[in-house]
């Protein structure tokens, strides 16, 4: 089965980023394909490398980055949502004159068309959020 996973909420505030991660991991372990993870609304906050959770807490951002790296997963942050919330990659920094970037490894920034395409290309779309 080919899956697209949509994550609507940021890390730590709501459990949905955790549930989405454990769901994705279980799907991969069962041999399913994740076509894309699309981070939308506050969900784009899953993709900033500047988080520093306490040592006794899970590192949600790093967990996603590692999953992307290990399984070569396409993880997309919605561009309009990312711009509003200050998640910046090289392209965005250049276009909008920002003095730094903060996107975490394994993520990229792109448009809502990527979500629509996920719906077209995948066997299932599943949304995690508040």
């Amino acid at each position: 089965m080919k899956l697209t996973i949509q994550v609507n909420e940021g890390p730590y505030q709501h459990q949905s980023a955790d549930t989405a991660y454990y769901f994705a991991k279980a799907a991969l372990e069962k041999g399913h394909e994740i076509f894309r993870v699309f981070f939308y609304h506050d969900g784009v906050n899953n993709g900033t490398r500047l988080t520093t959770p306490p040592q006794d807490d899970r590192n949600i951002v790093n967990r996603w980055s590692e999953l992307a790296q290990e399984h070569n997963i396409d993880m997309v942050l919605c561009v309009a949502a990312a711009q509003r919330r200050g998640i910046v990659d090289d392209g965005e920094a250049e276009r909008n004159g920002k003095d730094t970037t903060n996107i975490a490894p394994g993520f990229r920034i792109s448009g809502l068309g990527q979500l629509v395409e996920g719906g077209i290309q995948s066997d299932r779309l599943i949304v995690f959020g508040d």
């Binding site: 769901f23 279980a26 069962k30 399913h32 299932r124 949304v127 508040d130």
Partner: peptide, 20 residues
């Protein structure tokens, strides 16, 4: 069910509605 069972349910049904 565990997370693997969650995945199985997604596969066993044609589509998923998350009532958020």
């Amino acid at each position: 069910v565990d997370y693997a069972g969650f995945v199985d349910l997604v596969e066993a049904n044609d589509k998923v509605q998350s009532w958020l």
